[in-house]
Amino acid sequence: MKHDITFTVNDESYSIAVESHHNLLRVLREQLVLTGTKNGCSEGECGACTVLLDGEPVNSCLVLGVEADGHAITTVEGLAVDGHLAPIQQTMVELGGTQCGFCTPGVLIASHALLLRNPDPSEAEIRAGLVGNLCRCTGYVRIVDAVREAARMQRTSVSPIP
């Protein structure tokens, strides 16, 4: 059962027909071939599929594609601006916050959203803000460092553009 929807993804507008039982994750990955967003559990526990829905992070595995009608989505592919990495992307690279990289897209989106709502988070706030993003590789140490450093860069307006 298909439904026509119109929505934007990373500021691009799309009008497509989606199956009513396909979740947003599947629509993004299979119909739009935006495969940066990952599927780790299909149950909203691991956070690998985190995207922004109208600026707020959600587990795209638990959103029906049809529900995106009329809304704005941001995925990991939309974080860099004009080919320049966002601060959180830069610091994740520099501080070693990514290993296998499979949780990384979701971690980046969740961290980006955290910094939008709290530009100067404490260590405890960073950790609590990432509790919905499981990482099995890093032990979270470098991810927390990267978020802290990205916050500092953004607050001090250090340009992310070299």
């Binding site: 909203g44 956070g47 985190t50 829905l53 707020e56 992070p57 959600v58 587990n59 638990l62 959103v63 969740a110 959203a113 955290l114 803000g129 509790v131 919905g132 993003n133």
Partner: peptide, 9 residues
Amino acid sequence: VASYQLRNR
């Protein structure tokens, strides 16, 4: 409840 992103929905 759960995580921030889950509580958003």
